[in-house]
Amino acid sequence: MIKIRNKTLFAQIMAIILAVPMLAWAGGGGATGFIDAGTFALVIEVGLALGAIILATVVKKMGMPLPKLVQAPILWAVCYIAFRVILQPPIPFSLLAMYMGVCTVCILLYCSLTTESWEEFSNPIAKMLRANSGGAKMSRYATFVILPGLIAFQTYDMMLPKFGEPIELRTVHPAPPASINTHKKVINLQTAENPFRIGDDGNYLKVGDESKYFGGNAWTGDVPVFLQKVQEGGQVFFGTAGCFFCHGDNLDGLGPFSFAFNPIPANFADSGTIAQLQESFVFWRVAKGGPDLSREAFPWASAMPPWEKHLTTPEIWKVIIFEYWHTGFFPRTWG
């Protein structure tokens, strides 16, 4: 008996420890715009679910155990929130429906474990259906109107034709070809190295070692050769090619033309793009542009030009150096 009590107490304390800061953080963040609305809703929902558990245990401790009929929907709601919101990335609806089906069966099993618990669960329903007391009548009339009303509304909502944007799942980083031919030279994308990763000693600069140049000034008179190449790459990004029109002055994909394009230009400042890619992959993307993408990456909709038509091979390698320097990311390597 004592053991169980301790467990309940433990659960309560854990729930309070989790829920209170969450609600406080979300409240503060939502009010100041510190966190975005989606995160705000998520945290509030999780907080409310935990709050409901606290409420249930507190009420139970006060000697008023929640009837099974109330416990069941709360359990169900907690499961729903867990699958729908907490589980990331979001699962498809068919899977959600399956999980919730299993949960429903489990909850019904839990409610019908013993004859007493089943009676506790079903008696209020039976009471609502047939009793003649004022409260029962009220709840019967409400149920008989609200339940069919809700189902009828959902039917209407499902039948009403919807005209949303078609859902088209696009692969952002499709598999590259083994090699490409640009400016009459074959470039093997597995082995190609950026010829402008040069250290002060004139030798190849290993990925990671360029961090000492991050934040350096590439515009003073006597700069290391690496920063010289960064500067030349910047001239390509902002001048010769004009990459910033789409990819933005901060390389965050929010350039002045970005609002007109769908899909939006790549955000290099995000750790999910160039930071995940080999330099040779980036070379392929720059040299061949949208039209060379495979079908799952929507070559017909990408506004990325095939830059080999406008830039030389060295210019492409230099602009890649610049992009990594500017964002402070390292390219992926397989070594």
Binding site: A52, A77, P124, A131, G135, A136, M138, S139
Partner: peptide, 18 residues
């Protein structure tokens, strides 16, 4: 049972509010 019915109504209201 009446008590339970009352609780059921309250529980329903709580669920709707949530």
């Amino acid at each position: 049972m009446k008590d339970q019915a009352r609780k059921a109504i309250k529980g329903g209201a709580l669920a709707i509010a949530l």
